[in-house]
């Protein structure tokens, strides 16, 4: 039985970690980008960002003040036994978000959509937002994503229904055009992690795109060769566009391209793109039935990638 006091503490630590500590894969992607960048300004921008992110761990302050939407992904073991059940987990998450906001690890960003009124603690209608996946086993894994407004509001999330007749060319054009439009003037804080969802209904494609952007390990490959090849082709093509960090021009325009797909009605193929900003904040933990807690380096949402 997973005890309430154990998951309460683990959830708070995971939120704090997600907001303040750079993920290992993001750090590695920055180091690689800095090494190959030839633009002096872009190299300075990448280097400054990495230095600031490293300082966040020391100062225990947010990697970026826009901690955005608090979004949670919960991988629930089918045989897991939890004190208070999943309602207890959701209560603990709401309490931890409010506490992290009060302590300045999160910014009170969530407002009423019509009035702009500020609850002051990031708690409101449908926020935090929860997504579940059920898997064999008796542990649970909880991922916190701080989804910033830059990468969400300024063109980072888009979709188009592409005719089956238009094939791969249609899908590729949609991705390239979306990415260029959303990175202009640094709108989505590039170099971003680009997630692409292909197939399913439009909302399924959009969810897959968001999960691909926020939950995949940077640089991991889709296990199916056709999609792995498409990821690689798009990654190479986007990094030759010259967008650069914050859109000022440079060699690194995207940190990774991740694709997830669903089978679909081929009357029209939903192609969705979603981006996570360059600081790509997320953190995950696993809580086992024996109440041991493991902080994970990567969300493991797609099992091994």
């Amino acid at each position: 039985m997973i005890k309430r006091e154990v998951y309460e503490a683990a959830i708070f630590e995971t939120i704090k970690k997600g907001a303040t500590i750079i993920s290992k894969d993001v750090k590695a992607a920055f180091e690689k980008a800095i090494e190959k960048e030839t633009s002096v300004s872009a190299k300075e921008g990448l280097t400054d960002t990495l230095r600031s992110m490293e300082l966040s761990e020391v100062k225990q302050n947010p990697l970026c003040p826009d901690t955005g939407w608090p979004i949670f992904y919960i991988k629930a073991g089918n045989e897991s036994r939890i004190e208070g059940g999943f309602v207890g987990i959701e209560e603990a998450i709401r309490d931890a978000v409010a506490r992290a906001t009060k302590l300045g690890y999160l910014r009170a960003t969530m407002k009423h959509p019509l009035t702009g009124d500020d609850p002051g603690n990031n708690i409101g209608m449908n926020i935090p937002y929860f997504t579940y996946k059920f898997v064999p086993g008796n542990s649970i894994e909880i991922t916190y994503v701080a989804k910033g407004g830059g990468s969400e509001c300024f063109g980072g999330t888009r979709h188009r229904i592409v005719a089956f007749a238009d094939g791969l060319a249609g899908i590729k054009k949609c991705v390239i055009d979306n990415y260029i439009a959303s990175t202009r003037a640094g709108a989505i804080c590039p170099p971003s992690v680009l997630g692409i969802g292909i197939g399913g209904t439009a909302n399924v494609a959009a969810n897959l795109a968001k999960e691909a952007a926020c939950l995949r390990t940077i640089g991991s490959k889709n296990p199916e060769p056709a999609f792995a090849k498409l990821e690689e082709e798009l990654y190479d093509a986007i990094n030759r566009l010259g967008i650069g960090i914050m859109g000022i021009g440079g060699d690194t325009s995207v940190l990774a391209v991740h694709i997830e797909y669903a089978h679909t009605h081929i009357a029209g193929i939903a192609v969705a793109t979603s981006s996570n900003c360059m600081v790509a904040r997320r953190a995950a933990c696993r809580i086992n039935d024996d109440n041991s807690v493991i902080q994970l380096d990567s969300p493991n949402w797609f099992g091994g990638r």
């Binding site: 188009r160 590729k172 030759r240």
Partner: peptide
């Protein structure tokens, strides 16, 4: 960014070509 746009517009055509998107391509 108008200046960056000019570079990106040229590179976009190269990207289309490398990705096998024909100049005549139009969405259905």
């Amino acid at each position: 960014y108008d200046e960056v746009d000019k570079t990106v517009a040229i590179n976009k055509q190269k990207a289309y070509s490398n990705l096998g998107i024909s100049p005549e391509f139009e969405y259905t």
